[in-house]
């Protein structure tokens, strides 16, 4: 942990608490994330993983059920008090189920971060953004001939990569992925894992996953949550092989969760 702090983290979470009505979902979370690396969040269902990542791009206030207190510093700015719209430009999110906009073409889906904010890029700009984002999401080769087609005709894995391209198009600093492969087949899952390995060179990724071997393959750092508490956080190489906390060990060994 000390070593991490020295690197000047991109995200610094300080005594974060989340309460749904009366029920606490996250208790006193303190954690910081190093820049341009992949951080996976693991733990049994209901331990608060989604609740945690949804704090980062202010998704909770859309539902109005959760009360969030504490600080989350993104390069020193507290994103819990900043303007939510600019926070969401800096921190993109990809959800569990692929959710491309069904009425838009593939190209317009990629551009939707701009279009939906009232910015209409010029033709050459638009083409460049679409190609760059789709290449980053390793989808370009599969869809370059049908950019004007609707996204509904894509497979689940392709739709999810389209959602990643859509998030990347506005060049966020952080990308949140909440179980992005849990609805996908193994081949699509594999291609998204490869993609994450490539992406983390330029974007900080926070990945929620149920798939421990996936977490082991892609993580630089991993955090284990249990019943709303952060139990352990450390670099991937030691975390998965030699966890410090007996509860982490038990979870990794499949003894609960």
């Amino acid at each position: 942990m000390e070593a991490l702090a020295a690197e000047k983290p991109i995200l610094d979470v300080r005594s974060l608490n989340v309460v749904y009505g009366e029920t606490p979902a996250l208790k006193e979370i303190n954690i910081s994330f190093a820049r341009n690396s992949l951080h996976s969040i693991i733990g049994p269902s209901g331990c608060g993983k989604s609740t945690f990542v949804r704090c980062f791009n202010r998704m909770h206030e859309l539902q109005g059920e959760a009360k969030v207190t504490g600080q989350i510093l993104l390069d020193g700015d507290d994103i819990l008090t900043d303007d939510p719209f600019s926070v969401r430009l800096r921190i993109g999110m990809v959800f569990q189920r692929p959710n491309p906009f069904p009425s838009l073409s593939i190209a317009d889906n990629v551009l939707s971060g701009f279009l939906i904010n009232g910015i209409r890029p010029k033709k050459d700009e638009a083409d460049a953004i679409v190609e760059t984002a789709l290449r980053k999401a390793s989808l370009w080769d599969e869809v370059k001939d049908k950019l004007k087609k609707r996204s509904m005709f894509l497979s689940g894995g392709q739709q999810q990569r389209l959602c990643i391209a859509r998030a990347l198009a506005v060049e966020p600093e952080v990308l949140l992925l909440d179980e992005p492969t849990s609805a996908l087949d193994p081949i699509s899952t594999g291609s998204i894992e490869e993609l994450m390995l490539e992406l983390k060179k330029s974007v900080t990724i926070v990945l929620v996953t149920h798939n421990l071997s996936q977490a082991g393959r892609v993580s630089d750092y991993a955090a284990f949550f249990l019943l709303g508490e952060l139990i352990e956080y450390g670099s991937g190489s030691t975390f998965f092989i030699n966890p410090k906390d007996s509860r982490t060990d038990a979870y990794l060994a499949g003894r609960f969760g």
Binding site: D83, N117, I119, P121
Partner: peptide, 15 residues
């Protein structure tokens, strides 16, 4: 750049 245009647009959108 487009991203800066997007950022600049946020104020207007907010209003």
């Amino acid at each position: 750049t487009l991203r800066n245009r997007l950022k600049a647009r946020l104020g207007f959108n907010r209003v």
